[in-house]
């Protein structure tokens, strides 16, 4: 009888744990801000300054269709800015090589009639499905850096 109760308890405990573990706070997919009233060149310049101010290094800037169409035909209203912090990159790759899925850091800028939208994929959203808590903690920090950079760049 005791054994039966113990087995039942185990089954209920497992059933209770499974949904509980799935209830971890879900990250939003996209981090975004808007630089109102700016054109894309001004927004890129502000973003580059914010990147440097937060101890990141500019890597490159390109149009979304760079190298896919002749230069003159590139859509210059959608730009990608890549940047990184080498110490953080080193740390993340040591924790898990799959961190490369978030490297280098990137912000996509989209020019709209009212300004420029700055958009980044939330690294914590990417890492939450990887099953590596140490990497996820790093990505939570990286998310905070992204938010600070986006905020400063859109001020």
């Amino acid at each position: 009888m005791t054994r039966k109760l113990r087995s039942l308890f185990l089954v209920f405990a497992l059933l209770w744990i499974a949904p509980a573990s799935a209830e971890a706070p879900l990250e939003e997919m996209i981090l975004t801000s808007t630089a109102q009233g700016r054109n894309i060149d001004a927004a890129v310049a502000a973003l580059l300054q914010a990147i440097v101010n937060h101890n990141y290094t500019f890597v490159r800037e390109q149009a979304i269709d760079s190298r896919l169409v002749p230069y003159a035909q590139e859509v210059r209203s959608v730009r990608l800015v890549y940047f990184c912090n080498f110490a953080k990159m080193n740390q993340a790759l040591k924790l898990d090589p799959r961190a490369a899925q978030m490297l280098p850091c990137r912000v996509t800028l989209v020019e709209t009639p009212s300004g420029v939208d700055l958009i980044a994929v939330n690294p914590a959203w990417v890492s939450q499905s990887m099953g590596n808590p140490a990497l996820h903690a790093e990505c939570e920090n990286l998310k905070q850096d992204y938010l600070a950079i986006l905020e400063e760049a859109s001020m």
Partner: peptide, 29 residues
């Protein structure tokens, strides 16, 4: 191939260990 990102050599150049990782970006219009 839009871009090859040699993050292995970039890290080594700055005194970090070689992660033996590179990233390629590929695309189509």
């Amino acid at each position: 191939l839009v871009k090859m990102q040699p993050i292995d050599t970039a890290l080594v150049k700055r005194g970090f260990d070689d992660p033996h990782v590179r990233i390629l970006f590929i695309g189509s219009e």
